[in-house]
Amino acid sequence: MVDLLLYLTNGIVMGTSYALCALGVALVVGVMRVINFAHGEFYVLAGYLSATFASALHLGIFPSIAMSILCVFFVGLVVERFLIRPTYGNEMYSLIITFILYIIVENLYLFIFGPYPQKPPNWVSGSQNLFGLFYYGNQRLVSFVTAALLISIFLVVLHKTWLGRVIRAVAIDREMASLLGVNPTRINFFSFGLGCVLAGAAGIVLTPIFPVVPTVGVGISLTAFVVVVLGGMDSFLGAVVGGLILGIVENLGVAYISSGYKHLFGFVILILVLFLKPTGLFGHRQFQ
């Protein structure tokens, strides 16, 4: 029983970060119909930058986080402008381009930051005795709270502000939105940057726990794809629920089946969902 509670806690904590990262994929897919293979590379970028700013420039934890997020946003905009924009309307082309981009960026990280893991400083240290049952790292708890907060802010912005309405309008019906005077190219541009920021935010939250190495990005991207397919490609709520489910399933699987198969469970879910309900748990329509 105590075990189960520990695994569930860990599942929810990890799942929240998965959700944060997957929201970025859901946003980019929803607005632009683009699957960005290099999504996880922005997670890695944020991790590296926050570690570098903190250690090399001796900035505090929060200024370095803010600066890294800003950098990730601009890099995202540049990528959109020069690599994604020429592929509009051709999903296969964008997939190939972002796949190559992922290989380039992964190897650039190796070139620039070396193969060693880098880690931004912990925000807090030590651990808590949760429910009087087991010890749990404080950093994990703080990361969890931060990720949950960021997700809430994102959902509020999406549903309560003008900007959110425009994004949702474009996601639901591009032509209609452009007839109503929204500039879809500009929304694409901005949404891609924002999607990258969400991946970066997940990186900021998780890298104090799991230091970054050049090769983690692709795993992050794949996890986010699984979450988005599970939740439904056109659903932001789906990404959140999907993230939590995946986190819990992975941790229960590791505990009761095998730790080597941790990432297998996600892909089995992916194929099952595509087979049984291609629109995902909360999706309404198939993505064409």
Partner: peptide
């Protein structure tokens, strides 16, 4: 389309 890519990736 994209579903084939994601399934084969998985």
């Amino acid at each position: 389309g994209i579903y084939l890519s994601l399934t084969t990736l998985g």
